[in-house]
Every structure is written in structure tokens, then in C-alpha cells.
Design a binder for these strands. Structure first.
Length: 360
DNA sequence: ATGCATGAGCC
DNA sequence: GCTCATGCATA
């Protein structure tokens, strides 16, 4: 009943995901390296299963390998922090002169080029959604045995590149260096498109963040590592030049255009809570009147209600899980979700299914 | 940093 | 219906 039409907050998603993707990029990937990579990554998959400590009891061998789960149970610092062994030559030779798609690239220092990847407003010519690439890639070049080989790049040259510890070490190193370079996760994501590695487009801040925090699947880590490694090399090289030249004005990311964040004062918040009790899903008009009354922007009020509803759902779900955990053998009772039964219901189910074996 | 969503491919 | 990679929007 409460679950009526979900608030359409992400209308932009569709448009973005529908971006056509440049097929020509894949024209030349009939090369055996790709198949080699697929095979090798598949091996990595197997290796993962032999990893000694899968500490998360929810995880089954065939489940997605999670670095956070894996490493949370292993603190073999000697192995993990030891050395950041120069990454195998996984990154392709790269021509810095093509990094930036502008006519002025010739006059730019490498750092400028790298930073320009992030700051130039023009949308990168090869930016597209990776999932589109996935389809094309897996359905055309490589045996579609799995979702594995996502990127048409050189295969890992050794198991070093698929070793969880190596990947962890790289991720840590990557993050440290990125921060030293003064580049944000979002910047890196955008810059990737300008590397013009075949099949490599931009990535979101989320993905860079997840890479650094090891919250991607193993396969995803393996696939992304050489790409990020390649970017890092460029950036480091550029930074050296910068030190020599000493000209960083306007090159480093612009840090002074910060967006202001709304903060709702306590009295207004209290009123909002009251309104929420009365009607958790106020109409647009109602929101407008509340906004007017509290002297807040309508959108601010709308968002607050969205978050409040979300919060409630979260709380309920965690309680539900806790109860079920205490009665594992009991009958499995799913929460009854009444409403239009559309996306919100599907989402509920998906959430529970995301806990494999939890109720078994 | 993360909750929720999307969409293709797979079974 | 599920997995998986990924992104948006927000905390």
C-alpha cells in the first residue's frame, strides 16, 4: 500500500546507458591474445577457489569473489604489503600525444595532458557504457563461456596479475599515488577514456572507488588493473615533467568550485518528521507547501522524504535479516509487499536473493 | 563510500 | 530469475 510508484529520481540513467558505443573499436579484436586472456582469467577464477580462507560463510565457491571478504580475514602483512612488484608489463605501449583529443595537445606537458583528460569539458569521443562493450565483446570475439574477459586488452602475462595479494597491493599503491597526484577518483574515471586503449571507455567514480577498496569481483579487478595501471604510468610520468617545469597553474584539478551542501536545521527537521508521520509519501503539491512553509527548496524537501522512506526500508530489512538469522531452521517467511508490485517488489526479492545460502 | 537501479547474457 | 559490471545520486 505504501509502495506506490517509486520516485523517478534517476531518469538520466537511461539516457546515459543508451549512449551508442563505438563498434569500430572492436573491429580488430579477433586476435588470439584475447582468447588467451579469457582462458587465463578463467584460470584466475579457479585459483580463487583455492584461496585458503574464504571467511564469509555466505559465500560459496561459485559465488562472486569479493576482495573485501577475502582480505578481511587475512592480514598476512608480510605477503600483502611487502612489495609492490612493479606491475608486469600489462599496460600497452601508449602514445601520450593522443591522450587528449584537442588540437593543443602538442603544446601540453604530459601532466597537462593527463589532467586535461579530466578537466576538458568536451565529452570524450570514446566514452560509452562499459556494459555495452561487454555484450559486444563477449558475443563477438570471445567464447561467451562466462562474463569474464571484459576488456579486449592484453592477457595477464602471469598468475602474478591475477593473484589476489598482488591486486590488493596494486590497489593500495594506486590509491596512494592517485592521492599524491592530487587526482580524484572521478578524474581518473574520466581520464581512462582518453587513454584510448581499445575497448576502454570512461568509468565512474564509484567503480574507481570500488577498485581501490577491493569491493569488486576478482574478475573485475583483474580486468581493470592493467587499465588503471596504464593511467597511473601516464600520470606519474606527467608529474615528473611537472616537477621539472614547475608549471602547474590551471593544470591540477580545480578545487575551488565546490558545491554547497544543504543542511537542514534541527527545528525544520523536527517538523519534517512530523509531516512524515502523517504522510510519508506526500504529493508534489504537498511537498511544495511544506517547502514553502519551512523555507526550503522543494527539491530539498522531496529528497528528504525519499531518504526518510529509504531509511525505514533499510531498518526493516536489517531487522528481518536478524530475525531470520536467529531462526535459521524456521519456516521462511517473506515480507509481504503490497503495492503495485513493480520495481520495488523486484528489488526486495533481489535483495534477499543477494544473500546466497543465508536461509538454506 | 554506498544503496539502489539497470540491462545484457545465461540457465 | 539470476549473475555481473557498472552508474547515479546521495550520505
Amino acid at each position: 500500500m505504501q509502495n506506490t510508484a517509486p520516485v523517478p529520481t534517476t531518469t538520466a540513467v537511461t539516457a546515459s546507458k543508451m549512449q551508442p558505443f563505438n563498434n569500430s573499436l572492436f573491429g580488430s579484436f579477433d586476435d588470439p591474445l584475447l582468447n588467451a586472456r579469457a582462458a587465463q582469467v578463467a584460470l584466475a577464477d579457479i585459483d580463487v577457489k583455492n584461496v585458503p580462507q574464504l571467511t564469509n560463510p555466505l559465500m560459496r565457491p561459485h559465488d562472486m569473489f569479493s576482495y573485501s571478504n577475502y582480505f578481511s580475514g587475512i592480514h598476512d602483512t608480510s605477503a600483502a604489503t611487502n612489495i609492490y612488484q612493479g606491475l608486469p608489463s600489462s599496460s600497452e605501449p601508449f602514445d601520450a600525444s593522443v591522450v587528449v583529443p584537442t588540437s593543443s595537445e602538442d603544446q601540453m606537458t604530459p601532466l597537462q595532458q593527463v589532467m586535461a583528460m579530466q578537466t576538458y569539458g568536451a565529452p570524450p569521443p570514446f566514452q560509452y557504457n562499459m556494459s555495452h562493450m561487454t555484450q559486444h565483446f563477449t558475443t563477438s570475439s570471445i567464447s561467451s563461456s562466462s562474463n569474464i574477459a571484459r576488456y579486449p586488452i592484453a592477457p595477464p602475462t602471469s598468475e602474478l596479475e591475477t593473484d589476489p595479494r598482488q591486486l590488493e597491493t596494486f590497489a593500495e599503491h594506486f590509491k596512494q599515488r592517485r592521492i599524491k597526484l592530487g587526482v580524484t577518483q572521478a578524474d581518473v574515471g574520466k581520464a581512462l577514456a582518453h587513454l584510448k586503449m581499445p575497448g576502454v571507455g570512461s568509468l565512474s567514480q564509484s567503480t574507481i572507488c570500488r577498485f581501490e577498496s577491493l569491493t569488486l569481483s576478482h574478475n573485475n579487478m583483474v580486468a581493470l588493473k592493467p587499465i588503471l595501471h596504464s593511467w597511473l604510468e601516464k600520470a606519474e610520468e606527467a608529474m615528473k615533467q611537472k616537477d621539472t617545469i614547475g608549471d602547474i597553474n590551471g593544470i591540477l584539478p580545480n578545487t575551488d568550485k565546490k558545491r554547497k551542501r544543504t543542511s537542514i536545521a534541527a527545528p525544520e527537521k523536527r517538523e519534517l518528521e512530523q509531516f512524515f508521520k502523517q504522510q510519508p509519501r506526500p504529493s508534489g503539491e504537498r511537498i511544495a507547501s511544506i517547502a514553502d512553509r519551512l523555507d526550503l527548496k522543494k527539491n530539498v524537501v522531496r529528497v528528504w522524504f525519499c531518504n526518510q522512506r529509504q531509511k525505514q526500508k533499510r531498518d526493516f530489512r536489517s531487522q528481518f535479516r536478524a530475525r531470520s538469522a536467529a531462526a535459521v531452521m524456521g519456516p521462511r517467511v517473506l515480507p509481504v509487499v503490497v503495492g503495485n508490485g513493480s520495481s520495488s517488489l523486484k528489488q526486495e526479492q533481489g535483495s534477499y536473493n543477494a544473500l546466497p545460502g543465508f536461509f538454506d
